[in-house]
């Protein structure tokens, strides 16, 4: 094979291998960072603790079965403003930026969440709820100093 053709073939093969590797890596990341399956949950309690105010919400039955979805449901039903930023795929997730007019960074505090007493370990839209789950969104220092909410 002439030198130029061989060089072109090698460049093409390298580019193809690169594309396949990138696609496999993105697919693997998406598969590992899963959105929880859709589920209907019962008797979910939500508490939102802002600076000097508190919102309580209870859902007897809801298809909004993540820590973020139940907050969005409460915002819709109770009429408070919720603002969130969505990051881009494949590690797409939401970051809650403001609740009821209180925005991240004010007085060095941030919106954090706990589910059943456990501090969130994934994006709030990836955190599954179960029957009887207690969800707390609190405006706290990050990371919070308290061992429990």
């Amino acid at each position: 094979m002439p030198g130029d053709a061989w060089s072109r073939w090698r460049a093409f093969a390298f580019f193809a291998v690169l594309l396949v590797a990138i696609a496999v890596l993105f697919a693997g990341a998406s598969a590992l960072y899963r959105v929880p399956p859709a589920a209907v949950v019962h008797d979910v309690h939500l508490r939102v603790e802002g600076p000097g105010w508190t919102i309580e919400y209870r859902a007897d039955t809801t298809p909004n079965s993540t820590a973020y979805a139940i907050l969005a449901e409460a915002a819709d039903r109770l009429g408070f403003v919720l603002d969130a930023r969505r990051y881009v795929a494949p590690l797409d997730s939401v970051l809650v930026e403001s609740i009821n007019g209180t925005r991240n960074g004010e007085d060095g505090l941030w919106w954090l969440y706990w589910v059943d007493g456990a501090y969130g370990d994934v994006g709030a839209d990836r955190k599954a709820l179960h029957d009887g789950s207690d969800v707390l969104w609190a405006f706290r220092e990050y990371p919070p100093r308290e061992a429990s909410p």
Partner: peptide, 9 residues
């Protein structure tokens, strides 16, 4: 792990 896979890509 998923973050490293994206970082490798």
């Amino acid at each position: 792990v998923p973050f490293t896979l994206v970082h490798l890509a």
